[in-house]
């Protein structure tokens, strides 16, 4: 018998743990972003903290690894699943009553990934990365953010992407716990509701921030 082999259930476990880790990260990120609604000083203060704090400095590479693992496993699982499904297609499909998000996790994930790339390019590379490299970071990150969000195109893309994340999360949350085996007939519907509440809170809050600047409420 082979001793080491990555079974389907272990692959799902990795998917699940990395996904849950990202779910927690989103809350931290959201908390930091929401300070833009308080004041320029508050947000700049938080950014400064994020740039210099030791724990954050340790967690950033861990976070990057979390994303890489999640995305790598997602690609591997999706490829294997396409192979397992085979190339023969049904003439008629989509008749059974199942959630759209659940069927489209990979596509939704790719949309989130696109957002992530743009986001890293526009914000992170100018803010935290600079100070990690020992270069002077932008002195006023608040203005950087505010200027970008006043651009309707950028805000629009940002909001669309947030709602792709909403779909990803509504399925992802309960699915992650199901993969861990923490589920039964009573808890599946409950976890679906908790996942929806989480997704609504996170995505509404993330949407308010660009809208705040777009509508000029900061002035």
């Amino acid at each position: 018998m082979q001793r080491f082999y990555l079974s389907s259930i272990v692959k799902k476990l990795i998917m699940s743990i990395s996904g849950l880790f990202l779910i927690i990260f989103l809350l931290v990120h959201l908390g930091a972003n929401l300070t833009t609604l308080i004041s320029q000083e508050a947000y700049n203060e938080v950014c400064h903290f994020m740039d210099t704090n030791v724990l954050i400095r340790i967690m950033v590479p861990v976070l990057a690894l979390g994303f890489i693992i999640h995305i790598f496993m997602a690609c591997m699982l999706t490829l294997q699943n396409m192979k397992a499904r085979g190339s023969d297609r049904y003439a008629i499909t989509g008749k059974s009553n199942i959630s759209w998000a659940g069927k489209n996790m990979f596509v939704l994930g790719i949309i989130v990934l696109g957002f992530l790339a743009l986001h890293l390019m526009h914000f992170w590379s100018k803010m935290q990365l600079q100070s990690f490299m020992g270069v002077e970071a932008v002195t006023d990150p608040y203005t950087l953010v505010a200027d970008l969000f006043r651009n309707p195109l950028y805000s629009g893309i940002y909001i669309v992407w947030i709602w792709a994340l909403w779909f990803h999360l509504t399925h992802g949350f309960w699915s992650a716990l199901q993969s861990l085996g923490l589920n039964n007939n009573t808890w599946i519907p409950r976890l679906e509701v908790i996942g929806k509440i989480y997704a609504w809170i996170v995505c509404l809050a993330f949407t308010i921030i660009p809208l705040f600047f777009l509508l000029g409420l900061d002035k």
């Binding site: 082999y5 692959k11 799902k12 397992a84 199942i98 959630s99 659940g102 309960w174 699915s175």
Partner: peptide, 18 residues
Amino acid sequence: MVREMDQLGFGNCTNTKA
């Protein structure tokens, strides 16, 4: 049973509920 299932080429569950 899981090992056999994987080796026979069945896919990985993504909890679609289909």
